[in-house]
Write a protein that binds this DNA or RNA. Structure first.
Lengths: 314, 314
DNA sequence: TCAAAAGTGTTATCCTTACACCCATGT
DNA sequence: ACATGGGTGTAAGGATAACACTTTTGA
């Protein structure tokens, strides 16, 4: 990297965290109130500027999160650096100054809200991403609007491109790919269907401050992909859990239902978990054996994860 | 993101690009000379500071690359933002000022060097990553040194952890995983076996300026992973090519040899390519049919790529 | 005629998927 | 008794990996 003197227009660098958890079969994200935003956009991710006192980016992030929410972070992973100048298009002119934001994904075990931070379901912000109860009702309306947007393209070629993207991301062709959360959000953004892009209603989900919903979409997509080849789900689980609980968490994250028998077999024969001696007698039915994550799997398998068995019924 | 006033210690933000190509069966990276570095570290990636005139990060990157190398970029993807303050540990004290660098991966079709930029083989910087001619000779010496480093750990527990990491990344357990380029480099760095970390020799590969070799390792790992589920190889190929050429490029990128027959079948039945009418009569043997990338595959398959058939012989 | 690379066919094996069924507990 | 969730077995189908073999050119 070439050396640069700090100039009057040195960029502002922010740190933001999508902190995810799963409790009571519902996937959650930790949000904080954000002042000075347009109506309906007062929710945001924990965030703050990078300061000289921060030894590293990640340590700075942990400091901000702890200060704003009281939550201490375990697993943390860098997601993406958002840096377009027009991030600020909704705010005042910065006179050519850049505003970067380095976004992180964090996975935590427990949901204990602190200060004025609150846990919210992911699907508050992305209602069309939850297919556990079948095709979500919001989806048809959303796709219809997208298709209208494709119709009104300037050229037929552009219209075809838009149509292709809609089919690809919203599943007309080749089925639903649960990982394409960001692509779906960006399509909605481009089509002007989200409040962040000027839409009047929240049909396509609750808005967030700044570009925080884009960050959250990036985080969900990354996590949905990653559970398939890294045992990151266990960062969200208690030390001991039943296979049923594990399945419901994976379903909550991915937004699709899985085939029960195959899920169990997969988990078992991959060596991802091992039995404990105890069982639990929870809600109805036969008591279930409690399992724990088998840490050794990291040394045995090149890509230990939960390839989703794609099944329909429970 | 919270608002921050630009302070005296506003961070410096740099942009850097790992520009990759594949010519003559050799994977290449575009490098530029870097002045003011310690001996043996005068090679670097095209890079420059983010400037107020740059509309976006990516546009800034393209501008710097074009100015420094004359190369215009096609496919560009953000890799990672490196931001530890101690990036500068080899240089002077910055008085608490951060120096971030946003690294990008770029794939280009042709290798036409310009100015004082030069194309170099990847394996100049990571000799142990090339297994096309069998186990590379450098590898044994490198692993031996790593194991000595594990021996001299402060505690037995730490020694075991180090041993596990060596086995995992360098393939004692579960075979060689060609994607773990960064993990291998970081292990070598921690063990002090690379010049960037103070080593006297270049047994583990040619050093680079700043943390550019870490960026390059990130890029190679990402590309090696991505060819398996996205048709990015074709960004490196000419418009028409033979299946043999395609295979040799994939082998060059991944550093392992593939099973010929299965590779061809895979490429064909995945619908990744289609025949053209022409054939080519190149170096020895029967003339081969020229193929081209089938763009429609993007609409048909959820994850079109080249899962490597893992074969030994050609 | 032989080397070298292109290209085709076949088979054994493993993994995925789907279906059917039994088990243990609370009400 | 029966609803509910836990848990096991097995068979069909498709993808993968390994093998052997033919074709077409240039030297």
């Amino acid at each position: 990297m070439d050396e640069a003197e700090p100039s009057a227009a040195a960029p502002l660098v922010g740190l933001a965290a999508a902190i995810l958890a799963a409790t009571l079969d519902e996937p959650r994200v930790l949000t904080v109130p954000v002042a000075g935003q347009p109506a309906g956009r007062g929710e945001g991710l924990p965030a703050g500027p990078l300061e000289p006192a921060h030894p590293t980016l990640e340590r700075g992030l942990r400091a901000w999160v702890e200060r704003q929410t009281g939550q201490s972070l375990g697993y943390v992973e860098q997601l993406y650096t958002f840096g377009d100048r027009d991030r600020r298009r909704d705010g005042r002119d910065e006179g050519g100054q850049h505003a970067l934001s380095v976004a992180y994904l964090a996975l935590v075990r427990e949901a204990r809200p602190a200060a004025d931070a609150t846990w919210q379901s992911w699907y508050r912000y992305f209602p069309y991403e939850d297919r556990r109860a079948g095709r979500p009702p919001a989806l048809d309306a959303v796709v219809a609007r997208l298709e209208a947007w494709a119709e009104e393209a300037a050229s037929p070629a552009e219209g075809r491109r838009r149509g292709d993207r809609i089919g690809l991301t919203f599943g007309a062709a080749g089925g639903w790919n649960e990982e394409r959360v960001l692509e779906r959000y960006e399509l909605l953004f481009e089509a002007g269907l989200v409040p962040e892009a000027g839409a009047a209603d929240s049909l396509a989900g609750q808005a967030m401050a700044f570009d925080h919903r884009r960050m959250l979409a990036t985080a969900l997509g990354r996590l949905r992909g990653k559970i398939k080849y890294r045992p990151v789900v266990f960062e969200l689980m208690p030390p001991a859990f039943t296979l049923g609980q594990l399945q419901r968490v994976v379903e909550a994250l991915s937004g699709v239902l899985l085939h029960k028998q195959n899920f169990r077999r997969l988990v078992a024969q991959q060596g991802l978990v091992e039995e404990t001696e105890s069982v639990t007698a929870e809600t109805g039915g036969r008591p279930a054996r409690l399992m724990r994550f088998r840490r050794e799997v990291l040394l045995e398998r090149p890509a230990p994860g939960l390839r989703l068995p794609a099944g329909r019924a429970g």
